[in-house]
């Protein structure tokens, strides 16, 4: 009997396999009052250069079909998991994983000239003009007040809020779309250790019409479209996260449906519900609470619960 109990316990424990990543970004939102002229600083954590990766090539196993990385909770784990594209099946050896990651990143070769000069600092600077937060916030620079938003007298006594983001961009393998996955943490003052808001905001670019030469599309203009679009995606991700924190998204979990998305020529399914919709963009909340914003036209079919 004792042996049986021991064996049964082992079997039970074996059923709870350890997660592949130790953790993932859990959606967390604290109800909080925001007063007028609250200063807010937007930061980006990461490497000097903006992180771009090629969307993972399908490993031929339908369990990873269309899968991309879900960033981890801590900075180190987040970066490590990105670099190794840790979402691959356990059955794949490490060398196979890195080979696939290397192969996936080849899609970025035509864009090296843009990406080599795309710093995280410039991403923050250039996105500032595009980020439109709630009127109660005044976006300021971390060190000096911004030209667009002069620090008011009463701000000086206030600790600024901090919107800390970890943006990672993915280019789809058909080069039709760029996808930003941004882990966002919001602190109501700089000294706070625990964020009042944590989430992942995923923003998908408007895929361009099928073209034989996708690179000329992304490299067009000065600055190139790839850079312009990346900055817009970043701004959108910050805006939707802050809107979510302020409970200004229309959450209706009872209207949960399956979305069928055309993501860079690939069909992707996601379960969730609408939280915002306009002519151009639609934002949904996934079952984990993460936010996903996409061009409205890329939603090609809906399967309703009823």
């Amino acid at each position: 009997m004792r042996q049986f109990l021991l064996f049964a316990s082992i079997a039970m424990l074996a059923a709870c396999t350890p997660p592949k990543n130790d953790a993932y970004t859990k959606y967390k939102k604290t109800d909080i009052q925001v007063t007028e002229h609250t200063p807010v600083v937007i930061e980006a954590v990461g490497q000097d250069k903006v992180m771009f990766l090629g969307q993972m090539i399908d490993a031929g196993n339908n369990s990873t079909k269309g899968a991309m990385l879900y960033p981890g909770a801590t900075g180190e784990m987040f970066l490590a998991s990105i670099i190794t594209h840790a979402v691959l099946e356990k059955s794949m050896g490490n060398s196979a994983k890195s080979k696939l990651a290397e192969q996936s990143n080849k899609v970025l070769i035509p864009y090296a000239s843009v990406l080599d000069n795309f710093s995280t600092k410039s991403l923050l600077q250039d996105s500032r003009a595009l980020i439109h937060l709630d009127d109660r916030f005044d976006v300021i620079d971390g060190k000096t007040s911004s030209a667009s938003s002069v620090v008011k007298d009463d701000q000086q006594s206030k600790q600024p809020w901090v919107v800390r983001s970890k943006p990672v961009y993915f280019m789809t393998q058909d080069e039709q779309a760029v996808i930003l996955k941004n882990v966002i943490e919001i602190y109501s003052n700089k000294k706070q250790k625990k964020p009042i808001y944590t989430n992942i905001a995923e923003v998908i670019s408007s895929g361009h019409a099928a073209s034989k030469d996708a690179s000329s599309y992304w490299l067009e203009g000065n600055p190139p479209r790839l850079r312009r679009e990346s900055i817009e995606l970043f701004s959108e991700s910050i805006e939707i996260a802050v809107t979510d924190l302020l409970s200004k998204l229309s959450d209706s979990p009872d209207k949960e449906i399956t979305f069928k998305l055309d993501q860079g020529g690939k069909t992707v399914y996601e379960r969730g519900y609408f939280v915002a919709k306009n002519e151009n963009r639609t934002t949904i909340r996934t079952l984990r609470g993460w936010l996903k914003s996409m061009p409205s036209e890329s939603l090609i079919e809906l399967s309703r619960a009823d």
Binding site: C16, K65, A67, V87, E89, T258, Y269, R271, L287
Partner: peptide, 23 residues
């Protein structure tokens, strides 16, 4: 068969696994 890309054991609502089912 649609797998979960990271953690699946999230009772009581199993969001990632639920998503996999609907996928």
């Amino acid at each position: 068969y649609e797998g979960v890309t990271d953690v699946w054991d999230e009772p009581p609502k199993y969001p990632a696994l639920t998503n996999s089912y609907y996928q």
